[in-house]
Nucleic acid binder design. Structure first.
Length: 222
DNA sequence: GCCCAGGTGGGTA
DNA sequence: TACCCACATGGG
């Protein structure tokens, strides 16, 4: 059920924000490492950490599985949460080598449900990271729900207020066509980053203010 | 000096 | 099942 309002939201997003480029789209393992590094980390530091790691070691399952964890840790320090992340990266690389012979592409060729389940069984891959890989690299019809998508889709009334991760994902996927998922995901993040922040929303200058049920009518955020 | 960043997994009730 | 919390650096 795709209503006019939902269509208008997407149109307005496209008019208001450039569609961000996707780095590393073709290589799932590099995308995976980038996504792990990005967890609770801003873009700039994510890129720095990835570059440092790339300079230190080849970003392949084999090389990272064999690497010294301390070396990974030093390279990615700038991304924060580096003890966790270095452990996850090493563990992931090893699991992918042992269970899939270093081949992530094969997983992404499985049917969506099976591919998702397999990815979620890997250490450090939660729903968001799995959906990023499935959508970005596997071209599968799913929508990763990060912190911005989670918040913004509720504020815009696209998802129920009490929805959890799956609830938000399901509601967005019911409203939009699968060929719009990637664009929608990227643009909701753009909106969330700039105008719809959790503590300090800039509702007054938001280009979608009139489409926001809670924002337009009442005491919008400061 | 505080708040936040494209989450995840382990612990506890 | 449903929360709560640790993880941690760097920039605004």
């Amino acid at each position: 059920m795709r209503d006019e309002r939902a269509a208008l939201i997407l149109r307005r997003l496209k008019e208001s924000f450039p569609i961000p480029e996707l780095p590393e789209r073709s290589n799932p393992f590099r995308t995976l490492i980038l996504t792990v590094l990005s967890q609770n980390t801003n873009d700039k530091n994510t890129r720095r950490a990835f570059q440092n790691l790339s300079r230190t070691l080849p970003i392949t399952p084999k090389s990272l599985a064999e690497a010294d964890e301390g070396e990974i840790r030093r390279a990615i320090r700038v991304a924060g949460l580096y003890r966790n992340k270095s452990k996850v990266i090493k563990h992931l690389a090893r699991s992918i080598m042992e269970r899939f012979n270093g081949d992530l592409e094969g997983i992404l060729k499985l049917p969506l449900g099976q591919a998702r389940k397999t990815l979620l069984s890997l250490p450090g891959i939660g729903p968001k990271t799995a959906d990023v890989l499935l959508l970005f690299c596997g071209n599968k019809p799913t929508i990763p729900v990060d912190t911005h998508v989670f918040r913004v889709s509720k504020r815009l009334g696209l998802s129920p207020r009490d929805a959890d991760y799956e609830g938000v994902r399901r509601s967005l996927q019911e409203i939009y066509r699968s060929n719009e998922y990637l664009t929608l995901h990227l643009l909701l993040i753009s909106l969330g980053r700039v105008f719809c922040r959790s503590r300090r929303p800039l509702c007054g200058s938001c280009p979608l203010l009139d489409l926001c049920p809670s924002g337009s009518a009442s005491k919008s955020g400061r």
